[in-house]
């Protein structure tokens, strides 16, 4: 059971979440995350062999909407909080390609 997680792993997770972090913060975060993970180690001690995996804590299924057109925002409303815009486009620092 680890009390602190590796600073390299902290940096990796921070990078995935796009969070910048000072060295001191990374050290502090390492021990805090370590404490949380050790609690999961505790949970892992339970025998879950015969327990069905849970997809959702609530018991609802098939919460579905009809395919009927509803209201959308205007581009002015949509862009109201955008730090940067070009007419009706959001403007972001240069990226390459599409995500998909």
């Amino acid at each position: 059971m680890s009390d602190s997680i590796d600073k390299k792993l902290v940096r990796h997770v921070a990078k995935l979440a796009r969070i910048s972090m000072s060295d001191a913060q990374a050290t502090a975060m390492g021990s805090q995350l370590g404490a949380i993970l050790s609690y999961f180690d505790k949970l892992k001690e339970l025998d879950t062999e015969k327990v069905e995996p849970m997809a959702h804590p609530l018991d609802f299924t098939n919460v579905l909407a009809d395919d009927q057109l509803g209201a959308s925002l205007s581009c002015e409303q949509a862009l109201a909080n955008a730090p940067q815009r070009d007419e009706c486009f959001f403007l972001v620092p240069k990226v390459i390609g599409d995500s998909q």
């Binding site: 395919d67 509803g70 209201a71 009706c88 959001f90």
Partner: peptide
């Protein structure tokens, strides 16, 4: 409409008009 909201699902409309 879209998968999780009732904005119009259509190609070629003016940018950021089928959004919510």
């Amino acid at each position: 409409t879209k998968m999780f909201c009732r904005c119009r699902n259509r190609f070629g409309d003016p940018p950021n008009t089928n959004v919510c």
